[in-house]
Amino acid sequence: MANTSTHINVHNLDMAYGSFVVQRDLNFEIKRGEVFIIMGDSGCGKSTLLRHMIGLNTPARGEILYDGENFWEALPRAREAMMRRFGVLYQSGALWSSMTLAENVALPIEAYTDLSPDEIREVVSLKLALVGLAGFEEFYPSEISGGMQKRAGLARAMALDPEILFFDEPSAGLDPISSRRLDDLILELRDSLGSTVVVVTHELASIFAIGDNSIFLDAEVRTMVASGNPKQLLADPPTPKIREFLSRGEL
């Protein structure tokens, strides 16, 4: 972690689908190079928050700043440039099903760099090897397992060495060992590339292993009820619900 300046700033954010308010008054900031965890009970709006941060849903109110620059008020061109610094791993993997794994990873590289086809092939093999999928270059997403799709999605998210990596439930559908390896990989990426990492997860082991900072969204009161380092939250839980959540309901 080279410096600890603020990288992402979420200010008074309200999120809604039509008239159904999912969460309101979200205020938090994410430091550069931090692993930031978004947690909360099922259906509280974690995926929705992620969709707002990566530009797929428009906020009902409030702003999201990247390096002080307002994402939703930026001109389309500037916004596109900001989005290019994101890498996103979707809850379902979201690989492009009509392309092989290699093509999936190669597409953003082809589009945004001047590498030659041979160089691209090498980079792609490397990225796939990083997630343990060496040798699967010519497979289509439908020909590999769900966990492998997740990992291939990660390889694609890392294709352009993004400044910010967003993960929606990365370890859902992975066995404990792969899930552990994924955590190590996330930390490795953060340390080597200096990326900021935003993770939506319920996986307690991951939360404590990789989380530097976190927020907890509550589905009942529809706002964030706590923020801070997960270990500290466990040591000194602000509400009984958070204690219950972080100790796996074992009270």
Binding site: I54, L56, R84, Y90, A94, W96, P108, A111
Partner: peptide
């Protein structure tokens, strides 16, 4: 998949 296209510009 369409979302993935959008976020990659």
């Amino acid at each position: 998949e369409v979302d993935a296209f959008k976020t990659m510009g």
